[in-house]
Simulated scan of single mutants.
Amino acid sequence: MSRRLPIIHSVTEHEAGPYRMELLDLEFSNGERRRYERLHGRNRAAGPGAVIVVPMLDADTVLLVREYAAGVHRYELGLVKGRIDAGEDAIEAANRELKEEAGYGARSLTVLRSLTLAPSYMSHQAHLVLARDLYPERLPGDEPEELEVVPFKLDDLHQLILREDFSEGRSIAALFIAREWLRNGEPAPPEAGAGGESPP
């Protein structure tokens, strides 16, 4: 069933730590009025979201990185990820982050889709980028220590998702999406701007 989007009568903004919070005064199609909160990153204007990268060392080997995660105070395995800087698109940001965090660039990069964290109240989106045809190249990043790079077989994904140190939802979802995309072959070409290549 298709429904008309709620009418936004007003938006009130205020700062909330690292975020900018909006209070929305909404009216739904049935006449009900509600107030919803929505969070934006404070640096939202600097770039259109973030990237999460699935770097394929070969046809069945993905490169993970092990990084300190302050939220759970432990080292976590996950995928290369980071913010899209001003002036970058998702492809450029993915290749830069890959070089900074894993020490590789990619000759072939394809945006598969976007992922949200908590779409009920956060505007944040991360563009899922599949990176193939890798070559060694490192750029200086902003991490306090060099990240450990851990190769993992996609065929063993059922084991990886049960590990205590691999818990980030976006990384789990991204690996399943990428594995299915690779196994079922490339779909019809996406819309313009949704994918591309970045040579070394």
Rank of each mutant, 00 (worst) to 15 (best):
L182D: 04
L115F: 09
E146D: 02
D156F: 09
E145P: 10
R113Y: 03
R179A: 12
E145N: 04
A178V: 04
R163T: 00
P144L: 01
R113P: 01
V150H: 14
E100C: 06
M122Y: 12
E92N: 08
L157H: 07
A93P: 02
L134G: 02
L175V: 00
A131V: 04
V111H: 10
E97L: 11
R170D: 01
L117K: 12
H158D: 05
L147G: 03
G169M: 13
G87T: 09
E137R: 15
H127G: 01
Y104V: 06
L154I: 05
I161T: 14
E88N: 14
R170T: 00
P119E: 05
L128D: 05
P119C: 03
G87N: 13
W181G: 04
S123T: 15
R132S: 15
P144R: 12
K153F: 06
R107G: 11
L117I: 10
L162E: 07
L147H: 04
I91K: 13
P119M: 03
D89S: 09
D165V: 00
P144M: 04
A118P: 00
D155S: 15
E88F: 11
A93Y: 08
D165A: 02
V149Q: 08
A126H: 07
A178F: 10
D85L: 15
A106F: 13
H158V: 01
G105N: 09
E97K: 13
E88C: 08
L117Y: 12
D156H: 14
L134A: 02
M122S: 14
S120F: 12
M122N: 08
G103H: 06
D85M: 10
G105F: 06
Q125H: 13
G103D: 02
M122G: 06
P151I: 06
I177P: 07
S120V: 07
R170C: 01
L139C: 04
